[in-house]
């Protein structure tokens, strides 16, 4: 069992890259970890701006709301907010699922539902914002 002698001791302690690629409970490696940090950093200013814009739109009628949401600066900020958030929340929910769901098939079903939900919310929001900007 303990065959470790000075001769056979490992020369280095890093696991070979090929062995860790695609590992982790969601089989996605460290890419998601980094993406979660990036969307968090970007999320801070975007969230603050989204809240300010939200306050600005309170109580306005549809014509005014559509005009403001369709203006270039507000439209771009909201597009960035939505894209950043759906990427962030997909990884976040994936983390919650793999933490609490040990059963492999239930886990995969929930991960699939998560992906569908985030893509749907993202695409519908982006569609609405583009329509407001370009009146497609």
């Amino acid at each position: 069992m303990s065959g470790i002698t000075p001769d056979s001791a490992p020369k280095h302690f890093r696991t070979a890259l090929a062995k860790v690629r695609g590992r982790g409970a969601a089989k996605s490696g460290t890419g998601d970890f980094w993406m979660q940090r990036m969307t968090s950093v970007a999320g801070v200013p975007l969230t603050i701006m989204a809240i300010v814009i939200g306050i600005f739109l309170l109580g306005r009628n549809q014509a005014a709301a559509a005009q403001i949401l369709g203006s270039p600066l507000v439209g771009i900020i909201m597009l960035l907010f939505v894209i950043c958030t759906v990427v962030h929340m997909k990884i976040g929910m994936q983390e919650i699922v793999v933490d609490y769901v040990p059963d492999e098939s239930t886990k995969l079903t929930l991960l699939l539902a998560n992906t569908f939900f985030c893509w749907s919310v993202g695409v519908i929001s982006v569609y609405a914002l583009l329509k407001l900007s370009f009146g497609l």
Binding site: Q62, I124, S125, L129
Partner: peptide
């Protein structure tokens, strides 16, 4: 985010 999505969509619809 469903709420945010509904808000944008409603503004775009009319």
């Amino acid at each position: 985010m469903l709420l945010v999505c509904w808000w944008f969509l409603a503004a775009a619809q009319g």
